[in-house]
Write a protein that binds this DNA or RNA. Structure first.
Lengths: 290, 290
DNA sequence: CGGCTCTGTCAAGACTTTGTCTAACCTCTG
DNA sequence: CAGAGGTTAGACAAAGTCTTGACAGAGCCG
């Protein structure tokens, strides 16, 4: 993914770096990720927002007003064309998976990836389908085989998108499920959300013992280590991790609670993964200031 | 192949030798081979990369960013047969994985997929690397984190290839690891081997209880159900599966033994997965004759 | 008109990045 | 052996970026 520093970004959109910083400071227009040294790194989405902002201001809207408009504008992209809503596609996908119909499932996924933003695909199709499956499995109306088949298929698609998610200059996040936790698909999705905002991702996945986390953290010095679990126990069992200061630890997933996070000194991530990604960016910035 | 020393190289691409060395030292942009005396020798591929780098920097990208882009970019066009053996590539891949270097690992995989047959890639690169990793993990010289990182990366690549492996008109195989078995990467590879011979694959993956297998078999009526495990216990624990006649059951993986297979009435698959795929085809034909 | 806010720009001082350069030594060729 | 061209390690200065704080013009209100 393209990541630009402020000078290059300023040239591209035709305004001064000072103004970019002012808009960020005054209106929170952008929240670019930062390098280790604190340099801003802008994404393509950031560029789109700035262009939108410039357009509005040029057309006479006050900057304050324009910023508020841009902030609340959906991340552009084909919004609900084609008649088929993400929810309808999710229903199709669920049915295809229940029939073990790989071709139909892949076709549904192809359609949504081609039509909607990553945020919409993950938040309104993939995760709901997985949640639904989990629920139906819990109450006995879906088989383990169905759940396995669906997990493997979706995992393959998501890991395909994850290609190269460790490249670039952004802050690094190490993602893992603690020992005893086997559901890592949500974590893959969260990795993609972080990636879309410029982070570099090192994915360790399910069932990672604390000591391996410590080794990895020593080697890679990530800005944050994210632990995710579907239930509380695995998170409760995580010991302090040498080499990972609690300030650099974040808990997410259904199993994460305020109390568990507090006990470990970790950040508690928002259940919405795109909010959580933003949260980590803010946290990182305030840490840099300190 | 033409190999140039640093002065000649610098003239050709139009930058100073000092800068070439700085880019190498700071960003690892190149890793030219060295003469006995330590002189750098640059290849044509190196030249291509430097030109790409120069182009990016000229267009305003920061050198750091540009280097990261160039490093992770696949070598353009049909790369020279390169003389690199699968074994050499496997060694590269192992090292990249040990460093948690996703870009280098992907590059190595890109090279082998572009150069060798699926059979060679699986049999001489991917599986040996995984075996080696398993061994080093067993004797303590590899961490769990390394094993997780490598598994997830390779799984993503293999599942990418698995795209659409359920399509077509061939006989269907259901692939699963029995309850208690979590290592399913070998099984993914076997699925690819079967697929290359025209089978349709339904992949259930790790830790699948017998009763789910029964459900799936009832629904899909596969020509064969393959169970794979790295150790014997999970296979020994598999009960008779209603809906799957023993004649349609096959055992594979390190944990499969003649005795276990005999007890379950199952076929014992050859340790070499391509032989095993052939074996299933033969078995299917003879069954059809009967 | 005076006062007020909004907004783009600027400056100071510190830090980072990056291309170049130097020093001291090594290798190959004529 | 001289000399062109290599090597590493480190230093250096210019350019870029960071934060904080300030300033001046525009627009608005009383």
């Amino acid at each position: 993914m393209a990541q630009r520093r402020i000078g290059e970004m300023a040239r591209r959109v035709g305004i001064s770096p000072e103004l970019l910083r002012a808009w960020e400071r005054r209106y929170g227009l952008l929240e670019p990720v930062r390098t280790e040294a604190g340099y801003r790194l802008y994404s393509e989405e950031d560029e789109r927002r700035v262009r939108e902002m410039v357009r509005l201001v040029d057309s006479g809207v006050s900057p304050q007003q324009a910023a508020s408009t841009v902030r609340s504008s959906a991340p552009a992209g084909p919004t609900e064309p084609s008649g088929r809503s993400p929810e309808a596609e999710a229903a199709d996908l669920t049915q295809a998976l229940a029939r073990f119909d790989e071709a139909a499932a892949d076709a549904a996924l192809d359609r949504v990836f081609a039509t909607y933003s990553l945020e919409a695909v993950l938040g309104r199709v993939v995760l709901p389908v997985l949640d639904d499956l989990g629920e139906r499995w819990a109450n006995g109306s879906a088989t383990v085989a169905e759940e396995h088949f669906a997990s493997n298929l979706i995992r393959g698609r998501l890991l395909g998108l994850a290609r190269g998610w460790d490249a670039g200059a952004g802050p690094r996040a190490v993602l893992a499920c603690p020992a005893g936790e086997r559901h890592d698909l949500g974590l893959v999705a969260f990795g993609l959300a972080l990636r879309s905002q410029g982070w570099r991702i090192t994915f360790l996945g399910a069932d990672t013992p604390a000591e391996s986390l410590a080794d990895t953290a020593r080697l890679l010095r990530p800005a944050v280590v994210v632990l995710s679990a579907a239930t509380s126990q695995p998170l409760a069992d995580v010991p302090p991790i040498p080499g990972v200061p609690p300030a650099r630890l974040a808990f997410g997933g259904r199993g994460a609670t305020a109390e568990l996070a507090k006990r470990a000194g970790a950040e508690l991530l928002d259940p919405d993964m795109f909010s959580a990604a933003g949260q980590l960016a803010v946290e990182l910035r305030s840490r840099a200031r300190a």
